[in-house]
Every structure is written in structure tokens, then in C-alpha cells.
Simulated assay, not measured.
Amino acid sequence: MNIAFTTERLHIRFAQIADAAELLKLVNQANFTKYIGDKGIYTLDDAKKYIKDSFISAHKQHGFGPYIIALHDETLVGIVGFYQRAVLQYPDLGFALKDGFEKKGYIFEAANTLLNHRQNLGINQVTAIARCDNRASKNVLQKLGFKTQGQVFIESTNIAVDVLYLLNTERN
């Protein structure tokens, strides 16, 4: 296990091919496809390729990317990370939880940890996007200190309208 950050309840770690089965479940949940989009990951091989292409290669290329959120007992509960998107000026904070792990503060805890270490990853400014109707994600982003800046259409996700947030630069 290659842990990047540890919190009181969580390990925020680099993805491994062994995570493929749990990621396959996560990306095919109804809330994931509704709020993030259909990633076209339908088989275990697709999930393994997703880990290589989206997790491992992002860290190699940008010095940052998505991480696995796991409990200290190794239970995978979700993902959190910084994404470099062509349509956004700054890296984007993104996250998702597996069903059954919502409303326990895991996303806030993991995202807050990443934000507190973002400068070590070479990130000063951070954006985050959430669908207008994704109240839970917007609440987490606001609690983290993000402010609404406007709206943007992300064609690649086929999601009509997203809200764009910009992290307050004075946040420590």
C-alpha cells in the first residue's frame, strides 16, 4: 500500500490495479453516472485500464491526480484528487464516494487534507465543479472554502450545466 496522506480515519493513497473491482462498482453507481458521467467502464479490464490511464499516468504527467480514499482497515470508500482538465484554467478538485459511505464526513476529511497539501504538489489555485443539482457536493465545496464564480459547460461529460468554484487563495 502506497499511502500519500493519513488522517484520523483515512488513508489517502495511490491507486493499485488491485482496486479495479471496487472502482468498477463506484463508477457504475447511479449517483456517479448522474453527477459525474458515464466513464464507459463496464468490465474489470476497463477498470484496470482506467487506473493506469487516469490515476497512475496523471501522477506521472502532472505530479498530481486522483487518489483512493480507504479506511484504516483498507476498506475502499471513494476517490479524491486533483484533475487537470483542458476546459479549466487551474487543477480541479474532484471526489466520489461508494454507496453506503455518504454523510460520514469522509469526503470533507480527504479533500481538506489534499487542499492543505496542494502546494507540495505544485498547486496554488484550485477549481472545483459540481452540477447545479448536486447539493451534497456543493455543500462540501462551500464548507472547504470554495466560492461560486459562474457556470461552465463540460462537453466531454454530456452534463448540460456545471457550477464553477474558485478556491479562496488565502486559505491555509
Rank of each mutant, 00 (worst) to 15 (best):
N31A: 14
N31H: 15
F32E: 01
F32I: 04
Y35N: 02
I36E: 07
I36C: 13
D38V: 02
D38Y: 06
K39M: 15
K39Q: 13
G40E: 07
I41T: 03
T43D: 08
T43P: 10
L44H: 01
D46M: 05
A47T: 00
A47S: 04
K48D: 00
K48P: 00
K49Q: 02
Y50G: 02
Y50C: 04
K52T: 05
S54D: 06
S54Q: 07
S54R: 06
F55H: 01
S57K: 02
S57G: 00
S57T: 00
S57N: 01
A58S: 15
K60T: 05
K60Q: 13
Q61W: 09
H62E: 11
F64A: 09
G65V: 05
G65I: 02
G65E: 04
P66A: 13
P66T: 08
P66D: 12
Y67C: 11
Y67R: 04
Y67S: 04
I69N: 02
A70W: 01
A70T: 03
L71P: 06
E74D: 10
E74S: 10
T75S: 14
V77T: 04
G78K: 03
G78S: 08
I79E: 13
V80H: 07
F82S: 10
F82L: 13
Y83Q: 04
Q84E: 13
R85N: 06
R85Q: 09
R85K: 12
V87N: 11
V87A: 15
L88V: 00
L88D: 00
P91T: 08
P91S: 12
K98W: 01
D99E: 12
G100L: 04
F101P: 03
F101E: 01
E102C: 06
E102S: 08
K104F: 05
K104N: 05
K104H: 07
K104T: 00
G105H: 11
G105W: 11
G105S: 12
Y106E: 06
Y106I: 05
F108S: 08
F108K: 08
F108G: 08
E109A: 04
E109I: 05
E109Y: 04
A111Q: 09
A111M: 12
N112R: 09
T113I: 11
L114Y: 12
L115R: 05
L115S: 06
L115M: 12
N116I: 09
H117A: 14
H117W: 10
H117K: 14
R118Q: 15
R118E: 14
Q119V: 10
Q119E: 13
Q119F: 10
Q119T: 11
N120F: 14
N120R: 14
N124L: 14
Q125I: 02
T127L: 09
T127H: 09
T127P: 03
R131L: 14
R131D: 07
R131S: 11
D133R: 00
N139C: 15
V140M: 11
V140G: 09
Q142T: 14
K143P: 08
G145W: 03
F146M: 06
